[in-house]
């Protein structure tokens, strides 16, 4: 547990949380490793985990019939992957595939939801961190969608 706590403390996503909050959350987290090609999760499966990436890169993909997997975005060290564990019906909407050897801290989604309900201050702090991350993603997706490089002189 000590090692998980120390890894959680080092991850930038949780840098705003106190030692006490990290200790409280550590019981929900496990260290996971994935080889290139492994799926962290697959569209349609139960969304049961929230991943904090420590090393490596993960491609977020959607499978298009006749075209195969289409990569929408990639996430790397220091970033987080997976939001669907937070909202009913708790099903993944995308595939997440390791494209490099990946080391991640995986939170059990149900356990994390329960902790956030038990301690609303912690729940609010985590919700703000998640909202900020989603806001950053939204801005970047907007920038991608602008297709800026296609028309520049």
């Amino acid at each position: 547990m000590e090692r998980i706590e120390s890894l959680l403390r080092k991850h930038p996503f949780l840098s705003g949380l106190s030692d006490e909050e990290i200790r409280f959350l550590a019981g929900c987290a496990a260290n996971r490793r994935f080889s290139p090609g492994d799926l962290l999760f697959r569209e349609g499966d139960e969304a049961s985990a929230f991943y904090l990436l420590r090393e490596g890169r993960v491609a977020l993909e959607v499978n298009v019939p006749g075209r195969g997997p289409l990569q929408l975005q990639s996430c790397g060290e220091g970033e987080v992957v997976g939001w669907a564990w937070l909202f009913p019906p708790y099903r993944w909407q995308l595939d997440a595939r390791a494209v490099e050897p990946v080391a991640a801290l995986a939170f059990d989604g149900r356990c994390l939801r329960e902790k956030m309900e038990q301690d609303h201050d912690l729940g609010y702090a985590l919700a703000k961190l998640m909202l900020y991350e989603v806001y950053q993603r939204l801005l970047n997706v907007r920038l991608q969608r602008l297709d800026l490089y296609g028309n520049e002189p």
């Binding site: 890169r57 491609a59 929408l72 975005q73 990639s74 950053q136 970047n140 997706v141 920038l143 991608q144």
Partner: peptide, 8 residues
Amino acid sequence: GPVGAVPS
């Protein structure tokens, strides 16, 4: 390689 916007 990575996919996304350059600021990411």
